[in-house]
Structure formats: structure tokens, C-alpha cells
Design a protein around this nucleic acid. Sequence first.
DNA 1: TTAAGTGCAAAGGTTTTGCGAAACT
DNA 2: AGTTTCGCAAAACCTTTGCACTTAA
Lengths: 153, 153
Amino acid sequence: MSDYRYRQLIDKMRRQGYRITPQRMATLRIMIESQEHLSAAQIYAALQEHFPTTSLATVYKTLAVLMKMGEVLELHGNGGEVHYDIMNPRPHPHLICVRCHRIVDADVGDALIAEQAALTQRMAHTMGYEVLGYRFDVYGLCPACREATKATG
Amino acid sequence: MSDYRYRQLIDKMRRQGYRITPQRMATLRIMIESQEHLSAAQIYAALQEHFPTTSLATVYKTLAVLMKMGEVLELHGNGGEVHYDIMNPRPHPHLICVRCHRIVDADVGDALIAEQAALTQRMAHTMGYEVLGYRFDVYGLCPACREATKATG
DNA sequence: TTAAGTGCAAAGGTTTTGCGAAACT
DNA sequence: AGTTTCGCAAAACCTTTGCACTTAA
């Protein structure tokens, strides 16, 4: 559950000597509790509600810390905007809606994930590459936008 | 062969009413003949040899035309830099070296590509998504960089 | 001939950085 | 108390745009 992930991250940050500030706590909460993967600007906007003085620079600095810790994954969308996945920094598929730009995890079973990983290894191996990670982003229409598109034409 | 692709693109541009300028011809040649997928800056640098006055703006404008024609695929790398794939604008796996930042096509058989596509459809279907495309980027070490890493430590 | 393309420079948007002030440990 | 972190503003970075000049068709 998300609360577990929150504590896990706070503990890890503390253990690694990073300070736990209200801004960082709020940033983590926002990222963890969001159903979708947010961009820096979206995190910043959400922060304004409770921490109106927090700056965008601080958001970026927090994200940089999380990146260094390997606890977030950068997702480069189509428009060059970067979104951050904090729930599952290990490679896994994302579904990106080309209409509403939301990014969600492909919540598929372990079997498909394993199949994906095996396929990746085979591909890389034939090319002599050593795999360190992969990104698998599917672009399409989310259920809501499929409906909307059907209605509008 | 790459010469075929070059003529194909020139013809298509002409047919669609775009003008064939020396800058555009050179840009196409550079992109097509490169073994890797170049960024705008890399294309610009390569252009300098034969067209020293060509501007980066023109490179971007040419890329915009190719995008509109659906003849290039944008590849968003790790550092936010965008590379362009002109040889195969349809979704297919890429291998990205995290050390030298080169991006090459995963030259795997049709069987694996098909397997990949099927997997994509299944994943999206369980989430209620309509697939429009996908990006599959594998991050790792290319053969050359594996050697270099082994030597240096 | 003339509409499209080029190239410069300036603007736009996002991410990063420097530094004095604030705050976590 | 001592450092890290904050937050502002400025810088850096890549990409886009405006406009007079040039050029492909």
C-alpha cells in the first residue's frame, strides 16, 4: 500500500543522510498518492495547496535526490515533458494516453512482465548488448478518451 | 537499401508540395546514412562539413516537415535529448547505450517483433486501452562500451 | 514570378545553478 | 552549532518563432 512506500522512502532518505523536510514529505505524498505519474510542474501545482511558498527548484532538487537513490523512474512523454514514477522504479510497461496525456502503470500480471523481460534479454543478447533496464511505453487512448472520441467523432 | 529510402522521401516531399532544397537533401542523406539515430544537434554538426551556413533552425524545420509526413519517429532519450529515426518510423525496439548514448535499431527477426506486438495488444487490452503505437527502448551497454568498461574497471 | 524555405536573432519553455536565509539533525 | 536544504532569481539548455532575404518550381 502507498503508506508503506512512503515510510520506506523516508527511512531510506534518512539512512542515506538526506534531511526530511516538510517540502520533501509533501512531495513524496503527492507523488505516491497520485493515480498517475506526475511531471515536475504538476507536483509543484499540487504542492501549492498546502505549501504555497515551495519553489519549483525545490521540486527538481527533490527529484534529483530520488533519482540518485534510484527510487524514481523518468518517463519521457511525447511533448518532451518528463513525468516521474515513484511507485515502481523498476522497468515495467506504461500506458500513455495521447489525448489526455495521463500516464498509468500497465497493471498486468507477473507472467506478462516476465515474458517481457525474457524477450528483452533475447533481443539485447543477439545484438551483443548488456541490458541495464528498459522502457516500454504504449501510446493509445485510455477508456475514458475512447468514449469521448466516439461521442465527438 | 538507404538510397531507395532517400528517393522515396524526396518523391513524397515533392508530391506533397514541399520544396527540395540542398539543405533538405543533405539533412536526409545524413539521417539515412547514419548507422545511429541522430539528434538535431548531431545532424546540424554533420551538416557543417558541406553546408557551413545551414542553421539549426532549418534542421528543426525539416524535422517538423518529416514529422508531419509521418516519416520520422521521435526518440526521447535519457537526457531529454530527442533523436530521430528516419529509417523505420513504425514502432520497433531500440537499443540505447547508457555510456556512449548511441541509439541503434534492435535488428531482431520478425518473429520477435510480432511477439512484441502481440504482447503489447494483450497488455493494453486488459486495461481497456486502444493501442496507437508503442516505444520499446532497452538501456544497456553496447559491445564497444562493454569492452571499454571491462578495461577501465 | 511567387510562394516556400533559409538563417539570423530573439523569444519560449523547461531544467539547473548560485547564494544568502532558513531549518533539520 | 553546523550543514543541508530552501527559495528566489538568474543562467543554461533545447526548441520554436518572426521576419527580411533568398531560391526552388
